[in-house]
Design a protein around this nucleic acid. Structure first.
Length: 873
RNA sequence: GGCCCCAUGGCGAAAUUGGUAUACGCAGCAGACUUAAAAUCUGUCGCCCGUAUGGGCUUCCCGGUUCAAGUCCGGGUGGGGCCACCA
């Protein structure tokens, strides 16, 4: 790493000066300011968006990769004549600002805006083609005012509900979490085991849209299948039946959900979850049940806890009447494995055909009645199957036909389910139903640094929306973070307001929105960020949907599902006219790096290492060795991060961008290596050299093409083929392929040593196209080269060239010749040569003759322009 | 437990619909330039046999379809992801 210091001298490309210059130039020319609305005379609109960052204060390599990809697309589409919308903003509410406030005694707002300023600086140093005039932060009152207005519209339309529910409580962050934010029983940010609490909360009724959100996935053909599958799983649609069991001595029946109504004749018990209303009622008078409930609630919800936990239950003494068999009853248990959140919080157990029910039945000595058997069993086999199942411990959960089930007997599982449902419905003992795993989205957070929920609680009037002319409900600035819990709750005066309806003393809602609410509609706000309504529907319609959205897979369910719900809700409330906000989605891979550990087992940062003979050591003096660990996602905890700001400072933004686009396909993880950056940096210098050294060998600008000699013609074909290929690559986000083709073209231009008018003319075209094709990826270098060619206008404002179709068609072509599928030779033939000519030429080749020997030629297959296969035998 | 994805040189990878496998880059090796180093340029670089012309093998393994398979089908192995006490 020595040579870089002397960049400024003697013909080297000075990235630092050039990058600052062109960034200033783009800014002054307002090159990337999008029109207020797409114009009629453009190639169309193109909205490219990368998931906006949380303002942590510094950009990381993941940002560099994400924003580079989006930037290439934005610049490419602009060159193609599209009206490109490529905005940037800040997902600025959230816990880290409050943690900083607690730790450093700095106001969350001050901390956040300082971070934004720092990160904006770093992003600008990347040379991104962003319309900065549209920038906003979600913590700006101007933004959250519209979010509050939107909420009131949704409230009016019945898309919001307030209900008491068991919620996920994060004891570290002291706030509620949505189901989507609980990962393996732990808070997604704090990592603390989540507790269950009964609280009254605000919810978006996302479950009303479960079917629509599911159906919409089928149309999203430019989304990764993986993400669509994850959303399908999350929504978790399953068809089945609700069954109403009459209980002895009670009027209310017990409602259970099942996907296997065909196994009802094998029911031997019912089980309630510990949170079921019936359980709670029984617990009031039954100490044993109350104790059991307590035991259930103390149980963890992590995978580990679940695996270790024994399936346990307690008999309530109640009995449920079988819906099909008169006089038959089954016991009702409370069981620790029945979930309150899924279905009705109660099940019926059929031990013969469900392994968990089987385990439970054996433990509590309940009957096991086989009611499904494999198809086409002989009588003796059937008897054996039944007796084995009735005695054994292994449930039979495969397909088959109903047995021991009266009117269902002989029906296959599917038909038996339908027949059972029909019977339940005719008896009034149940109904066919669809159940979803998806829960309503709980949005109340007991935090300060979020958007206030614009309602007031009045003893007389109940929950009253804040009148529109009083929006925004602003966060108070004078808050303290000394006490645990919600600072808004502790504030002496903020929450005390008169009721907007009756004027009596009332209490302001002190919960704030989940920050995912802020990010669920920001893409719509960018279409007109200064509007005095959440959106201007005609303008939003003109820009949306987002044509290409780019971000990490970690939002596959959270943000991407919420946003899909929001665009439906905004359609319902008249703010948008589309259901699906993101027409194209791309989930980029992570940036990884080797990890290092000292002899003490501590993580060591790459910056602390000294390399001797390709082996890492901790320091010069005692040369304590360091072990090289796995290649992992860059993270602070593993200390394997590389600071983009330092890289940009040292090598320039173009080098960092080029490295991010090279080698690894964008959806795959990319490993950051010193060699890789060096390689990218070498190429920026080489690119500059190639252009500079050709300056005195270029034809005039816009000169008409002279007659071309063979070598010039060949280079010209290469140029146009490269152009066609790169245009396709960039359209498909095949950045690594585009990079490889730039290398190939650069190699071809270096190798082209012809002189003369024809050569000069072709060289100009080659060099200009090379620069233009590189411009989306290394924009500063391209501008500097473009200017050195004498162009008065910028490369970023120059239209994308179009490949000459006639140059893509070859006159002659190299064909491989196979004998029995094995390649033996190749030959060059005219592209329009007849099948007969090709066959004869192929047979005439010496190596082919040798391979055929004395065998008979049985068949010759000719694939024009590709291959000849001679079949012998 | 269920569903899904992936596997190509020392490494990252490329290969439109099945049609010349290993483009391009990294690392390596050899040379040129230089007092020397760096930088740069040139050559070489899948594996095995052979001085060589050349021959054989090769896209995780086994089988199948086909004139032809990295690509399609079946079965394994290894790695990764998502969901999961889901009734």
């Amino acid at each position: 790493m020595s040579g870089h210091d002397s960049q400024a001298t003697s013909g080297r490309y000075n990235a630092k000066t050039a990058e600052e210059k062109w960034q200033r130039q783009w800014d002054e020319n307002q090159t990337f300011i999008a029109p207020a609305e797409p114009r009629a005379d453009s190639a169309g609109k193109y909205y490219v968006l990368e998931m906006f960052p949380y303002p942590s204060g510094r950009i990381h390599m993941g940002h560099v990769r994400n924003y580079t990809m989006g930037d290439v697309i934005a610049r490419f589409r602009k060159a193609q004549g599209y009206d490109v919308l490529h905005p940037m903003g800040w997902d600025a509410f959230g816990m880290p600002a409050e943690n900083a406030a607690i730790e450093n005694k700095v106001h969350p707002g001050e901390w956040t805006y300082k971070n934004i300023a720092a990160m904006r600086e770093q992003l600008k140093a990347m040379g991104l083609a962003i319309d900065w005039s549209r920038e906003f932060a979600t913590c700006d009152p101007a933004y959250y005012a519209q979010e509050q207005a939107l909420f009131l519209d949704m409230l009016e339309k019945g898309l919001v509900t307030r209900k008491s529910a068991q919620v996920n409580w994060d004891p570290v962050d002291m706030t509620v979490l949505a189901n989507e934010q609980v990962i393996d029983g732990k808070g997604w940010r704090s990592g603390a085991p989540v507790e269950r609490r009964e609280l009254t909360q605000w919810f978006f009724k996302i479950t009303d849209w479960a079917d629509d959100l599911l159906a919409g996935l089928d149309e999203l053909d430019r989304w990764p299948d993986k993400v669509r599958t994850m959303q399908r799983n999350w929504i978790g649609r399953s068809e089945g039946a609700r069954v109403f069991f009459k209980l002895n001595g009670r009027t209310e029946p017990l409602e259970v959900f099942t996907t296997r109504p065909d196994t009802l004749f094998g029911a031997s018990f019912c089980a309630l979850s510990s949170g079921h209303t019936l359980t709670r009622e029984l617990a009031k008078t039954n100490a044993a049940i109350a104790d059991f409930v307590k035991e259930c609630e103390s149980l963890g919800t992590s995978e580990e806890a679940i695996e270790k936990a024994e399936k346990k239950g307690i008999d309530t003494g109640l009995r449920a009447e079988h819906p099909f068999i008169e006089g038959e009853t089954v016991p009702i248990f409370v069981a620790n494995f029945v979930l309150m959140d899924y279905g009705t919080g109660a099940i019926f157990g059929c031990p013969a055909h469900d392994q968990r029910d089987m385990d439970f039945a054996r433990k509590y000595d309940l009957p096991v009645t086989p009611v499904v058997a494999p198809k086409k069993l002989a009588d003796n086999e059937l008897n054996e199957f039944i007796s084995n199942l009735a005695k054994g411990d292994k449930a039979f959960d495969s397909d088959g036909v109903a047995i021991n089930s009266r009117f269902l007997d002989g029906l296959e599982v599917g038909a038996a389910k339908r027949a059972a449902i029909e019977k339940l419905e005719s008896l009034g003992a149940g109904e066919g139903t669809v159940n979803y795993r998806l829960r309503d989205w709980g949005i109340s957070r007991q935090r300060y640094w979020g958007c206030p929920i614009p309602v007031v609680h009045c003893v007389t009037c109940g929950t009253v929306p804040v009148p529109r002319d009083q929006l925004p409900v602003k966060l108070p600035d004078d808050v303290t973070f000394e006490k645990p819990g919600n600072p808004l709750e502790h504030h002496p005066s903020w929450k005390h307001v008169p009721c907007p309806s009756c004027g009596k003393a009332a209490r302001r809602e002190t919960d704030t929105f989940d920050t995912f609410v802020d990010s669920s509609w920001y893409f719509a706000r960018f279409t007109d960020p200064k509007a005095t309504t959440p959106t201007v529907p005609s303008i939003a319609s003109a820009w949306l949907p987002v044509d290409q959205y780019i971000g990490g897979i970690e939002h596959a369910v959270l943000h991407l599902l919420y946003s899909r719900f929001f665009s439906r809700a905004m359609k319902e409330t008249g703010h948008l006219n589309l259901r699906e906000p993101f027409a194209g989605l791309f989930t980029q891979g992570m940036v990884t790096h080797e990890t290092y550990k000292s002899v003490e087992g501590k993580w060591v940062s790459p910056e602390e290492l000294i390399w001797i003979d390709s082996k890492p050591y901790l320091d010069q003096e005692n040369q304590s060795p360091v072990t090289v660990g796995a290649i992992e996602k860059m993270s602070k905890s593993k200390r394997n991060t590389v600071d983009p700001a330092a890289i940009i400072d040292q090598y320039g933004a173009d080098t960092a961008r080029w490295f991010m686009l090279s080698d690894s396909p964008p959806e795959r993880d990319v490993q950051w290596t010193e060699e890789g950056v060096e390689g990218a940096w070498r190429f920026t210098q080489r690119f500059w050299r190639i252009v500079q050294s050709s300056l005195d060998q270029l034809g005039e600008v816009n000169a008409p093409p002279p007659p071309l000699d063979a070598k010039s013609e060949e280079l010209r074909r290469t140029v146009h083929k490269t152009l066609a290929a790169i245009t396709a690559d960039l359209s498909q986000l095949g950045f690594n392929r585009a990079v490889a083709r730039i290398y190939e073209l650069a190699n071809a231009i270096s190798a082209f040593s012809e002189t003369g008018n024809a050569a000069k003319w072709v060289r100009r075209e080659a060099v200009e196209y090379l620069i233009q094709m590189t411009a989306p990826m290394m924009p500063h270098l391209a501008e500097e080269c473009w200017a050195s060619l004498g162009h008065p206008t910028m490369a970023s404002e120059t239209p994308w060239p179009v490949a000459d179709e006639t140059l893509l068609v070859e006159h002659s072509v190299t064909m491989a010749i196979q004998v029995n599928g094995k390649r033996r030779d190749e030959m060059t033939v005219a592209v329009d040569a007849s099948k007969e000519t090709v066959e004869q030429m192929a047979l005439a080749q010496e190596k082919v003759q040798h391979a055929i020997g004395t065998a008979n030629v049985r068949k010759i297959i000719v694939v024009p322009g590709k291959i000849v296969n001679i079949v012998i035998g």
